[in-house]
């Protein structure tokens, strides 16, 4: 229950209403800054990624395949780039989804369920993505897989 909502329901003037702690103090403010700063970074990171993967590759005629990823992630710069892109884009996007849920779904069980599932899925995907970007090693990956 947010502090403002407690005040509407009490029907009293806020200076007279019981002082309640705000819900998650500082969180919305932090996220407000995070969305804007990560947004600025993602303009460069995400658009850069799309331009390389879909436009420059097309113009130079390189195929995107296993070899491409191996040579790309052989360079630590691209690993750091992709790692930043993964973390910032995922948290930016998931927080955006949280905001949309907050705007459209009223307080109650459904909202809580949606937010908890969103959080759980995000943690899983974030860990998966981090393991792949940090741990990928072409020498140890199998040469043949279940699709051969």
């Amino acid at each position: 229950m947010t502090r403002l909502r407690t005040i509407y329901l009490s029907g009293k003037n806020p200076s007279r209403a019981a002082r309640v702690r705000p819900e998650n103090p500082g969180f919305e403010r932090f996220m407000w800054y995070f969305m804007r700063i990560s947004g600025l970074a993602l303009v460069i990171l995400a658009l850069g990624h799309m331009l390389i993967m879909h436009v420059l590759v097309q113009l130079t005629g390189q195929p995107v395949d296993f070899g491409f990823v191996t040579s790309r992630w052989g360079n630590p710069f691209w690993r750091v780039y992709d790692f930043l892109l993964l973390v910032l884009a995922l948290i930016h996007g998931v927080n955006g989804t949280r905001i949309v849920i907050g705007d459209f779904v009223g307080r109650g069980g459904l909202r809580a369920l949606l937010l908890v599932s969103l959080g759980a899925v995000t943690v899983l995907w974030l860990i998966l993505g981090m393991i792949v970007i940090i741990g990928f090693n072409p020498a140890t990956s199998p040469a043949v897989g279940p699709f051969t």
Binding site: F66, V69, L90, V132, F136
Partner: peptide, 19 residues
């Protein structure tokens, strides 16, 4: 993004799976 992360993680399963 969620689909793309899964798709890219296939790279750890080797060239055949990924390609």
């Amino acid at each position: 993004l969620f689909v793309h992360i899964v798709e890219t993680s296939m790279v750890t399963l080797g060239p055949n799976v990924y390609n």
